[in-house]
Simulated assay, not measured.
Amino acid sequence: MNFLLWLILLILCWPLALLALLLWPIVWLLSLPFRLIGISVDALFELLSALLHLPARLLGARGGKR
């Protein structure tokens, strides 16, 4: 889908399409630390949730809907 959108942009405005093609790796590299932070925060919240639900699970509660 992204490739088709890029092809349409290439047909309509080729300098902008080439600029997007050249800047995409730079944007990806700049966003990588934010993705890693997001993964870490998500893992931390999952750990906290597991710790908070541990007493109920030890007492025999069934795992319900999250």
Rank of each mutant, 00 (worst) to 15 (best):
L47Q: 12
I37N: 04
L9S: 14
A17T: 08
L10W: 14
W24V: 09
L58K: 05
L4C: 09
L23W: 01
L5G: 11
L7E: 14
A56H: 01
L22W: 02
W24D: 09
P25Q: 03
L5I: 11
L18M: 08
A20N: 05
L4W: 02
A17E: 05
L36Q: 11
A61C: 13
A20W: 05
L47P: 03
W14M: 12
A43D: 07
F45A: 15
L44N: 11
W28H: 07
C13G: 06
W24F: 11
L23F: 01
S49L: 13
L5Q: 10
P33F: 00
L54E: 12
L54A: 07
L52K: 07
E46D: 14
V27R: 09
I37E: 09
I8C: 07
P55R: 00
C13N: 14
S31H: 01
L10T: 14
G63W: 10
I39N: 05
L51P: 01
L16G: 04
L30Y: 11
P55E: 00
R62Q: 15
W24P: 05
P25N: 03
L54N: 06
I39R: 13
H53E: 14
L54C: 00
L47V: 06
L29I: 06
L10K: 06
G63E: 15
L29Q: 05
L51H: 02
E46F: 09
L22S: 08
I37H: 12
W28T: 03
R62H: 12
A50F: 08
L7R: 13
W28L: 07
L51F: 05
L21R: 03
W6Y: 13
L22V: 11
W14K: 10
A20L: 11
L44V: 07
L52S: 11
I11A: 15
P15F: 11
F34T: 01
L19Q: 02
G60N: 06
L12Q: 12
L5A: 11
I37F: 06
G38Q: 00
L18K: 02
V27Y: 13
P25I: 05
L19T: 03
G38E: 03
A17I: 12
L23H: 02
L32G: 04
L47M: 09
A20S: 07
W6R: 15
L52Q: 08
